[in-house]
Structures are given as structure tokens and as C-alpha cells.
Simulated assay, not measured.
Amino acid sequence: MLDHVSITVSDLPRAARFYDAVMAALRVPCVNRSDVAIGYGVRNRAGDDGHAYLSIRAAGAPVHADRRHWCFRAPDRAAVDAFHATGLAHGGTDDGAPGLRAHYHAHYYAAFLLDPDGNRVEAVCHRAPEADALTKDDALR
């Protein structure tokens, strides 16, 4: 549904430490860096629209992080765990430890953090643990 999204932050260097860490944990590359923004993911091109792009942008003023929420797909449950741990180690605040959220569906495995500005971010894996293992086994072959 979403092609790209921007999250505003009050202190870009501080946010960069956090987003560089959590995006690396989710295996999403940093592809753009300037004094006013950082970009992660892959921008869509003509005839190739299966990608997503995240931009972290300097707000130029304090940020009021109300109920905004961004959720990032994780390739497996281990990446959700890494997202949470590395986010905490790089200035994030816990807003929900890694675990199942069965009220969404039986395999909804997610973790929630607040970034250094209070923006709520989530990582989720929708796959069953067996599917995670099969995906990893297939990649090794």
C-alpha cells in the first residue's frame, strides 16, 4: 500500500544512530545521507514498483510525536529481536518487547520502540517459526 514514508526528527545525527542500527537489524540498507535527510530501502522505478523507501528528515524544530506509528516488515523473528535490542542500545525506548500478538493473528511476532523523538516504530514478522526455518534453509542451498 505504501510506496514511501517520511519520519521527522528534531536531531538528525541522534536519529541516524538509532535508525542506522534498527534498519541494519532488519537488513534494510541506508541508500542516501545528507545534512537534512537519511534514506533507507529502495525507491521504485518505472516498471519496478515492488519496493519501499523510508526517509528520516530533520524537522528544524521540536517534534511532537503524538500517535504516529510506523511498522516495518522483518524477514524473520530473529530480525524482530535484533531490531528491539539494537534500538534500545542506540537511544530507543521499549514500547513492547518482542513476542507474539495473537490478537492480530497466530503468527504476528512484533516488537515496539519509541525512537529518540518519541515516534513509535514497530517491526513485525507474519511467518510461523517453521516458515522462518524453511526460508533460511532454502537460502543456504
Score class of each variant (00 low, 15 high):
77 R>E: 06
13 P>H: 02
123 A>L: 11
26 L>C: 12
118 G>K: 10
101 R>W: 08
19 Y>K: 00
32 N>S: 12
121 V>I: 14
112 F>D: 07
122 E>S: 10
97 A>V: 15
128 A>I: 11
109 Y>S: 09
140 L>G: 15
88 L>T: 06
47 G>W: 08
132 D>N: 08
130 E>I: 10
79 A>E: 06
133 A>L: 13
89 A>L: 04
95 D>T: 05
49 D>G: 07
5 V>W: 12
62 P>D: 14
119 N>C: 12
97 A>G: 10
54 L>Q: 02
106 A>R: 10
100 L>Q: 01
30 C>W: 00
62 P>K: 10
44 N>W: 05
44 N>H: 02
69 H>M: 05
17 R>V: 11
116 P>C: 01
115 D>A: 03
6 S>M: 14
8 T>L: 12
36 V>R: 08
85 A>H: 03
79 A>W: 07
21 A>L: 08
3 D>G: 09
16 A>Y: 00
80 V>A: 09
119 N>Y: 11
5 V>H: 13
44 N>C: 04
1 M>E: 11
141 R>L: 15
74 A>I: 08
69 H>C: 08
100 L>R: 04
29 P>W: 00
66 D>W: 07
117 D>M: 09
36 V>K: 08
12 L>T: 06
129 P>Q: 09
61 A>Q: 14
36 V>E: 15
59 A>D: 14
123 A>H: 08
70 W>A: 14
88 L>A: 05
49 D>P: 04
90 H>I: 09
16 A>T: 04
91 G>E: 10
77 R>S: 07
73 R>N: 14
131 A>D: 15
65 A>Y: 03
77 R>Q: 12
10 S>C: 00
130 E>Q: 12
137 D>A: 15
2 L>G: 08
79 A>C: 07
113 L>G: 09
20 D>C: 00
56 I>Q: 01
42 V>P: 00
23 M>G: 01
121 V>E: 03
86 T>G: 02
65 A>F: 05
38 I>L: 08
15 A>D: 07
123 A>V: 04
65 A>D: 04
27 R>Y: 11
76 D>H: 12
98 P>C: 10
29 P>F: 00
58 A>P: 03
37 A>P: 00
35 D>P: 00
97 A>Q: 13
13 P>K: 01
65 A>N: 03
53 Y>W: 15
77 R>V: 08
55 S>V: 14
75 P>F: 02
4 H>L: 06
127 R>W: 09
102 A>N: 12
84 H>Q: 00
82 A>H: 08
30 C>F: 00
7 I>V: 15
10 S>H: 05
16 A>M: 01
49 D>Y: 06
73 R>A: 15
85 A>L: 09
124 V>M: 13
122 E>M: 08
86 T>I: 02
72 F>G: 03
83 F>Q: 06
126 H>I: 10
138 D>E: 12
141 R>Y: 13
81 D>V: 09
139 A>N: 10
23 M>Y: 02
84 H>V: 04
87 G>W: 05
98 P>T: 09
127 R>F: 13
114 L>M: 08
57 R>G: 04
125 C>F: 09
128 A>T: 14
87 G>L: 09
5 V>E: 13
90 H>D: 10
65 A>M: 07
51 H>P: 01
65 A>I: 01
28 V>G: 04
113 L>K: 02
30 C>S: 10
9 V>M: 11
104 Y>T: 06
130 E>F: 05
71 C>N: 13
44 N>I: 07
36 V>Q: 12
